[in-house]
Design a protein around this nucleic acid. Sequence first.
DNA 1: ATGGTAGCACCGCTA
Length: 264
Amino acid sequence: MKITTWNINSVRHRIGLVSRFLRDQQPDVLALQETKVVNELFPAEPLRKLGYVHQAIHGQKAYHGVAILSRLPFRKTGSQDFCREGHARHMGVTFENGVELHNFYVPAGGDIPDPGKNEKFAHKLHFLGAMEKFFARRARAKSDPVMILGDFNVAPLEHDVWSHRQLLGVVSHTPVETRLLGEVQAAFDWTDATRHFIPADEKIYSWWSYRAADWEASDRGRRLDHVWVSPGLKGALQSQTILKKMRGWQKASDHVPVVVELDV
DNA sequence: ATGGTAGCACCGCTA
């Protein structure tokens, strides 16, 4: 299975880029975040024509929104309420081969890393806590084939950001967030597919701000997008790729896709 | 220390 995740920052604005990506990469599955569109206006038809006839979409007007597009049929689909604000931030599917996939768009959390002063940051911490609880309590065995992916909006490791020291106080890399994401990871013994293949002391990013004059020259990125697999799928990991060059495409999203191949 | 860009919806919000 070739599985991909991409924060698209408006699927309607970038439907041409999505099509190009699907033609180039031919993934079995594409999980999108920030689709920014209600289900009725989701561009289902062009994606169907490319072979992605199985679509589990969960959108809302203007903000957030997630979708799972697949060439492989689903046995089951559904979105859980991890989000106390009622945002469209999760979609889950189970494939016919038994692999279960959860697509998350974790709240960005605003600018001030203090849950007492910033309600958006409090919400982000609550959402991560809900993820931790969901996987800590779930009945399904860790030996089962489960994966979670998406825009987690947290860069957990020192070399997931361009400057660990300068970002310790910046939302996405604060100790409270990285500790909490670590608890989510420990709750199901998840393996971080990117770091399974890329050493922890090597810098790697999936997001570069739109605000840089030259994103590539300054290279002040962060690794916010993740693919995690259960202990039952760890042995099936074949490769991971972060498609940095796509940040340079015309009309690019500020995030690039993460591609993971599994032998299942 | 500041402000820089982008998308959507509406003249601000979220990222």
